[in-house]
């Protein structure tokens, strides 16, 4: 029984996949722009978890075992930059229509 419960490569990857899918469904179904944006953050985090898992369970002994951690570190930096720019865009959208329902914004629709 305890053998079955011990965390392994598959379980970590499964948790990452479930979180990623929840984020995807959130992006597709929610209409509040900020919540859609938070779902994207959730997807980024799920992928980070997958990267660390692969680095932990599959890195070669001779090579750099911290390569996965480095990737996650850079992904976090880009996510921070993305959050800042995205929230600025949301603020300027709110200033135009006093609403952030994404169905309201179709000014680029041809």
């Amino acid at each position: 029984m305890s053998e079955l419960l011990t965390p392994n490569l598959f379980l970590y990857l499964a948790v990452g996949a479930v979180m990623f899918t929840i984020g995807t469904v959130g992006v597709l179904t929610r209409r509040n722009a900020i919540v859609v944006f938070m779902c994207v953050e959730l997807m980024l985090n799920a992928v980070n978890l997958t990267l660390v898992t692969f680095s932990r369970y599959m890195s070669p002994e001779s090579g750099n075992a911290a390569d996965g951690s480095m990737f996650v570190f850079f992904v976090m930096c880009v996510a921070a930059a993305e959050a800042v720019v995205g929230l600025a865009i949301i603020i300027s959208l709110f200033r135009n229509k006093a609403d952030i329902d994404i169905n309201q914004f179709n000014i680029f629709k041809w």
Partner: peptide, 17 residues
């Protein structure tokens, strides 16, 4: 993911320090 096979690493394998 079912087909992913992990490498056997030593217990004290230093990782992400």
């Amino acid at each position: 993911f079912r087909n992913a096979t992990p490498k056997e690493l030593p217990e004290d394998f230093s990782f992400g320090k």
